[in-house]
Amino acid sequence: MARYLLFVARALGVGALIMIVAIVSRQVYLRSAAEAADAGADEEPATMMLIRCETMHERLQNRHSSAAKADERPRARCRES
């Protein structure tokens, strides 16, 4: 039984590590996309608007996580609006 608990603990640790890396890489992507939006004005206006909208939704979710819908992705909301 202890062997299975050790296996479950390791699996949870690896899963938590993967989630942390995914969240950090997403934040880095959003920041670099926002900075690229300021620097690269020669991109398509629709692409620029999508990047800005996604960045804005991500910031709002970070501020008001209880008010934001956790199951709806920012990109989907940006395409609807």
Rank of each mutant, 00 (worst) to 15 (best):
L17R: 13
M19H: 10
A39H: 06
I51G: 02
E72T: 13
A11M: 10
M56N: 08
C53W: 03
E54P: 00
G15L: 13
G13Y: 11
R3W: 07
E80M: 08
A37Q: 03
N62W: 10
R52I: 01
V28S: 06
R75G: 06
R73A: 14
E44R: 09
A34W: 06
R79E: 12
D38E: 14
M48V: 13
A67W: 07
A33W: 00
K69Q: 03
E58G: 00
M56W: 05
A76W: 11
E58P: 00
L5V: 13
L12D: 03
M1P: 03
A33Q: 12
S81K: 12
Y29A: 15
A22V: 07
P45V: 04
A41G: 15
L50T: 09
E80A: 14
L60P: 00
I18R: 10
L12I: 08
L17H: 03
G13Q: 12
R3I: 13
R75L: 15
L17V: 04
N62Y: 07
R73D: 09
A34F: 07
L60H: 07
S25E: 03
R10Q: 07
I23N: 01
D71F: 15
E43D: 11
R75A: 05
L5H: 15
V21D: 00
G13L: 12
D42R: 06
E54D: 05
A39S: 14
E58R: 04
D71M: 10
L50H: 05
